[in-house]
């Protein structure tokens, strides 16, 4: 028996919205400790990693580990039928399920929707994310990071991110010209202004803005985002989801030929 009930179903809707342009089909692994998912995009330059802890669910039960192979597009179609205030319950009784049941219930418990999504058998890539001590960690407003990426992507396809002890600089060079936005360390009480820099070693790395803009679809999951960088390692962009877990995106840096 597997059952997971989310009090705020809208979070699950937001997660699926945030990853659906990046990955088409995924294996979600359910275990006693919660749900996890890892998948690379088709170009194999980005990786999505989702972890949802059992404690974050209203009810959670998973008697034995199971793998749920899902089409994200089809999952998204079913989740469109859930209201933003609904609870969402995932359920299956089978050991090797061929479908996953969904129950959506509104706050008054006056409307209950039930769907089943056919599952797919997907080759699971055995991906492992190496433990990395990032030499530059930036925590800032997710909306602000999203705005910077969106603005700069009209000038260039790539952005160079350079850290120093005091600031982080986002630079672009394009056919029409060049520019940069520098954000300084700021210990404001307001989330929207706060910028936390933990810089052991400054880094200078270049990334494709197209991917960063896709990651930023997760902006509504968290008011802050953390950018974790080390030379020659993929960038790790993390959105923490309150008590529930985290959604992480990894992106390979652009390298000079």
């Amino acid at each position: 028996m597997f059952e997971a009930k989310l009090q705020q179903g809208v979070i699950f809707k937001k997660i699926v919205d945030a990853i659906k342009d990046l990955v088409k089909s995924v294996n979600i692994d359910a275990s006693t400790s919660g749900l996890s998912m890892q998948a690379m995009d088709s170009a194999h330059v980005a990786l999505v990693s989702l972890k949802l802890n059992e404690n974050g669910f209203k009810d959670y039960r998973c008697d034995r580990p199971i793998t749920l192979g899902l089409s994200i597009e089809n999952l998204s179609k079913i989740l469109k039928c859930a209201g933003n205030d609904d609870t969402i319950t995932l359920q299956t009784d089978e050991e090797e399920p061929s479908s996953l049941k969904f129950f959506f219930e509104n706050q008054q418990a006056s409307k209950i929707s039930e769907f089943s999504l056919n599952l797919m058998s997907l080759d699971s890539e055995s991906l492992g994310i190496p433990d990395t001590d990032y030499s530059s960690v930036i925590q800032m407003s997710s909306a602000e990071f999203s705005r910077i990426c969106k603005e700069l992507s009209s000038i260039s396809e790539t952005v160079e991110i350079e850290t120093s002890k005091e600031s982080v600089k986002f630079s672009v060079q394009g056919d029409i010209g060049a520019g940069s936005i520098t954000v300084k360390n700021n210990q404001s009480d307001k989330d929207v202004d706060r910028v936390d820099l933990q810089i052991d070693q400054p880094v200078k790395l270049t990334f494709a803005l197209r991917y960063l803009n896709m990651f930023n679809k997760a902006v509504s999951l968290s008011s802050t985002v953390s950018l974790n960088m080390s030379e020659e390692n993929p960038l790790m962009v993390e959105y923490k989801i309150d008590d529930l877990g985290s959604l992480r995106f990894y992106l390979a840096p652009k390298i000079s030929d």
């Binding site: 330059v45 990786l47 390979a252």
Partner: peptide, 14 residues
Amino acid sequence: QMSQKNMTDYFKAK
């Protein structure tokens, strides 16, 4: 000119 590294090997090397 810049290129993007395929990350398959990186993430497979546990």
